[in-house]
Design a protein around this nucleic acid. Structure first.
Lengths: 164, 164
DNA sequence: TAATAAAGTTAGTCTTTTCTAACTTATTGC
DNA sequence: GCAATAAGTTAGAAAAGACTAACTTTATTA
């Protein structure tokens, strides 16, 4: 939903992350990060350069342009948000949450991203309800144990439906 | 995660859905359902037939094989689950929820699918807590209004962290 | 500094998924 | 029953994204 393909987004995100952990980024770094071969990276970088997303001189370093950096930051923000959702809300193991975040980050509508972010915020927030919800949900996920039954069940549901 | 590409999954799901709403499925039905042209469908069907996922005689009907049907049913179950999540939990409009479900259904790990299904179940369940949570969350999503503050906030968080 | 190793590049290929244009088969209405 | 139309098919092409093999440039180090 950045208007770029999944592959383009992945390249930009990879370069972005490599830039923060190293002084310079080279073809082989991107290749090993993404698990592909050098020639594939060379071809991709050329295409990114034509789109003004990166700069690259032959045999030299790869750098994001401001435009490329903006896209990369956006994708990475989505990644972090999704990681939080999968790990902290759903309670998935970090490695699994990481992989799901990687795959899903390219495919959500703006509306879904917005709501998911709200859900993460809400659930992480301090006020009682969400935290209790999260505890109950995660216990349910682990043990199958539902919260105790509720005498005013129908009222709750009605209230939920009516909440303005 | 069925081992098939996104495109293969989409074709099978389309044929599956068309089979339930019509007596027979033809090339043009699949093409219009997926918003592509007939020759693309013909090529794809040929490839699906080679994988034993569909049967098709020239100028005739398209049918899922049992193998193809099994894949399609699995994808469609994911779709329904995701739709419920996006629509009923996140509160997205049905059309938006539908599109997100379409895109995301191809990319979740088995673990994420399992947990998401649990979340949907849990939130839809009758017992008080999840329903209240959902009402509070959806109000927050609409209005930005947090649940009232909680004096025993820290205890709640501690409890959450400790819940076995 | 010359030789070797590592990294980068080029050329050519493959697969997937789509398209258009042109042709063939089926269907349908007179 | 045959002309017109709809549907299906074939052939050929394009774009994206990856690969291997072979070659070039840069870096290392003896």
């Amino acid at each position: 939903m950045t208007g770029y393909t999944r592959a383009v987004e992945d390249y930009l995100e990879a370069i972005f992350l490599l830039e923060r952990r190293q002084k310079v980024v080279r073809v082989k770094d991107v290749a090993s990060f993404l698990g592909i071969k050098n020639p594939s990276v060379v071809a991709a970088i050329k295409s990114l350069a034509e789109k003004n997303l990166v700069e690259h001189e032959s045999y030299g370093h790869i750098e994001l342009t401001p435009k490329g950096r903006a896209v990369a930051e956006e994708i990475y923000a989505r990644h972090l948000m999704l990681f939080a959702f999968f790990h902290e809300v759903l309670g998935l193991a970090p490695e699994v949450a990481e992989e799901d975040a990687c795959r899903v980050e390219h495919h959500l509508s703006p509306q879904a991203r917005e709501r998911l972010l709200q859900l993460v915020d809400f659930v992480q927030a301090c006020p009682e309800k969400p935290v209790r919800f999260l505890a109950l949900f995660q216990r349910y996920a682990r043990t199958g144990e539902r919260p105790e039954g509720c005498a005013v069940c129908r009222q709750c549901a009605a209230e939920a439906a009516l909440t303005p």
